[in-house]
Design a protein around this nucleic acid. Structure first.
Length: 267
DNA sequence: TTCCAGGCGTATC
DNA sequence: GATACGCATGGA
């Protein structure tokens, strides 16, 4: 990773990165493609517009400072992790090797815990365009992604405008358990995977899959391996006897390459 | 019209 | 522990 300031922008050189692969692969739901090579989105209340400039071999982070880049975006885009090294590790397995070649620009976004939890509650038995719609209405209503505290007074009825269906009651339960302290992010951060998953599953509407997505994308537990309908197809088709040893400890990162691969090659 | 979507709660055995 | 079924909503 290598970056420089250019006027009011930051220019980033990062070979193992692609905006379509990372920002539109179903791990985060509020990055918006505003033209062919540019996305707009946010981490918490920090907005960002980022463009790919392949002719210069750089990414342009618009209107940001070295300080913001170092304090926020290096971590969010996981720029201190060597994805080239991970892909070399994965390439010893045939299917993973194809998946990494198919979308070599995937990176895991280190998202906010609440945004990941609430987004993946909304995601259950749902499709990605509709998930984006619900989250878009939520953010429009609050002028940004609301915290659990912001949503303290929400009820099933007050959330009706989201048209999130049966998931509204799950959001209300999650808000309650977080505000009461029954669910404690700090404790979850320190727990091993199985304990952390059980802790999150105390929330109604959070089962193994939503919990693992929350732990992978919202707590950066890279050993969490969410099994949705697509990944179950991957396992049945290519890994009937389990995952290869080359993914040990980073199962979740491998999962993201596999998810994107099967979803975009087998409709 | 029916089927499906980054699943889960509940009932039943 | 496994399996069957309903669930809000909207696009294909």
């Amino acid at each position: 990773m290598d970056y420089t300031q250019s006027g009011s922008d930051i220019l980033l050189k990062q070979p193992d990165f692609g905006l379509d692969d990372t920002l539109d692969c179903g791990q985060a739901f509020r990055w918006e493609k505003i033209d062919k090579k540019t996305y707009s989105g946010a981490f918490l209340n920090n907005k960002l517009t980022i463009s790919e400039e392949p002719e210069n071999g750089v990414f342009r982070l618009h209107d940001t400072t070295v300080q913001n880049f170092e304090n926020i975006w290096i971590d969010y885009f996981d720029l201190n992790t060597d994805y080239g090294e991970l892909k070399r590790r994965f390439s010893e397995n045939e299917t993973l090797s194809k998946a990494c070649s198919f979308a070599g620009g995937i990176r895991i976004l280190r998202q906010d815990s609440w945004e990941a939890l609430s987004s993946f509650i909304i995601s259950q038995n749902n499709n990605i365009p509709r998930i984006k719609g619900i989250i878009g209405r939520l953010c429009e209503h609050y002028s940004g992604y609301p915290s659990a505290e912001d949503m303290a007074d929400e009820t099933i009825d007050s959330l009706a405008y989201l048209r999130s269906g049966f998931r509204a009651k799950y959001l209300v339960d999650a808000i309650e358990k977080i505000l009461s302290g029954e669910i404690d992010y700090q404790k979850i951060k320190e727990m091993p995977l199985d304990d952390a998953r059980n802790e999150l599953m105390k929330i109604k509407g959070v089962g193994p899959k939503v919990a693992d997505c929350t732990l992978l994308f919202g707590f950066y537990k890279t050993d969490a391996f969410p099994k949705d309908v697509w990944v179950k197809r991957v396992l049945a088709q290519w890994y009937p006897n389990g995952l290869p040893s080359c993914v040990k400890g980073v199962e979740g990162i491998a999962q993201q390459y596999l998810f994107h691969y099967i979803r975009n090659t087998q409709k």
